[in-house]
C-alpha cells in the first residue's frame, strides 16, 4: 500500500486551559476523502487549522506525504504550498478581481508567469462555469459563486491535499448545492481531501471515511454507511438524531 497523504497521530491542542483537540489520529490515503462531523465547537475547524499550521499543535505529530510537518524546523510556507484550504466565510480578497484572486498564489508563490497563471485560471473558471465572472469583484458575486471561486483559488496551485472547512455553512440552502457539486466533481477527479461539514447527505456521497468528533475527541469512525446508518456509539446516534431533527439528513 502506498504512503498516505496525511497522517495525524495523537494530536492535542488547547487554548489556555480549554482542551480543543485530544488524542486525534486520522489517516488519509491518496484520492480519498475524510469527512469530519460533529457539533459546532467540537474541534473540526481547529483540526483543519492545525493541519494547515495556522495553529501549532501542543502534542502529537502530523505528517504530510510521510514527512513530519509539526517539527520546529518546518517552514510553514513550504507546507502550505502543498495544501489548499477553503474557509466557511470564503475569504476572497475584496480588493482584487476574481481572476486576480486566483492567479495571486501561482504567480507570487509558485513563480508562474502572469500569462501562464491566467491561462490556467481561466481554464478552471471555465470548468466550473464561472468564466464570465473573471473580471468582476467578489462582492458582485452570489455567496455560492464566491465560495466556488475560493475553491478554484485553492486549486490553482495544484495542492496535494484540500482542506474544506464547512464550506456551505454561510450559504442559503439554494446555493449549497452548486458548491457541493463542485466538491463532488473534485472528488471524482481524485482530489485527496479532508472536510468538515454539517451536510450529512453530502458526507455520505463523497466520504471514504467519516469521523465523529465531540469535545475534541474522535468518538467513532468508519465508512459513511456504517457511521450514518448504524452508528454504535450512543453519542453519535444522539448527534445524528439532532441533525435529523434539524432537517439536514
Amino acid at each position: 500500500m502506498s504512503m498516505p497523504v496525511l497522517e495525524v497521530k495523537e494530536v492535542r491542542k488547547a487554548f489556555g486551559s480549554e482542551v480543543v483537540l485530544e488524542d486525534i489520529s486520522i489517516t488519509v490515503p491518496e484520492h480519498t476523502a475524510t469527512v469530519l462531523i460533529g457539533a459546532s465547537g467540537s474541534g473540526k475547524s481547529t483540526l483543519l487549522r492545525c493541519i494547515n499550521l495556522l495553529e501549532l499543535v501542543d502534542d502529537g505529530i502530523i505528517k504530510l506525504d510521510g514527512q513530519e510537518i509539526t517539527s520546529v524546523d518546518t517552514d510553514p510556507d513550504v507546507v502550505r504550498r502543498k495544501l489548499g484550504m477553503v474557509f466557511q466565510s470564503f475569504n476572497l480578497f475584496p480588493h482584487m478581481k476574481v481572476l486576480e484572486n486566483i492567479i495571486l498564489a501561482p504567480m507570487r508563490v509558485h513563480g508562474m508567469s502572469r500569462d501562464e497563471a491566467t491561462e490556467k485560471a481561466l481554464e478552471l473558471l471555465n470548468r466550473f462555469g464561472l468564466s464570465e465572472k473573471a473580471d468582476q469583484y467578489p462582492d458582485r458575486l452570489s455567496g455560492g459563486q464566491q465560495q466556488r471561486v475560493a475553491i478554484i483559488r485553492s486549486l490553482a496551485v495544484a495542492p496535494r491535499l484540500l482542506l474544506l472547512d464547512e464550506v456551505t455553512s454561510a450559504l442559503d440552502p439554494v446555493l449549497v448545492n452548486e458548491v457541493l457539486s463542485t466538491v463532488r466533481e473534485l472528488k471524482d477527479h481524485g482530489m485527496t481531501m479532508v472536510l468538515a461539514t454539517h451536510e450529512m447527505g453530502f458526507a455520505r456521497q463523497v466520504a471514504d471515511e467519516v469521523c465523529f468528533l465531540e469535545k475534541g475527541r474522535i468518538l467513532e469512525w468508519g465508512t459513511p454507511e456504517k457511521m450514518l446508518e448504524n452508528p454504535t456509539n450512543p453519542r453519535t446516534k444522539d448527534f445524528l438524531q439532532r441533525v435529523h431533527e434539524a432537517g439536514r439528513l
Partner: peptide, 21 residues
C-alpha cells in the same frame, strides 16, 4: 485576520501577505 489566514494558507509569505493582501 481571516484575510491573513487565507493568504497564508495559499502559501504567501508574511511579507507577501502584507504587500498584496
Amino acid at each position: 485576520p481571516s484575510q491573513r489566514a487565507a493568504a497564508r494558507s495559499l502559501g504567501l509569505s508574511n511579507f507577501q501577505t502584507l504587500r498584496y493582501v
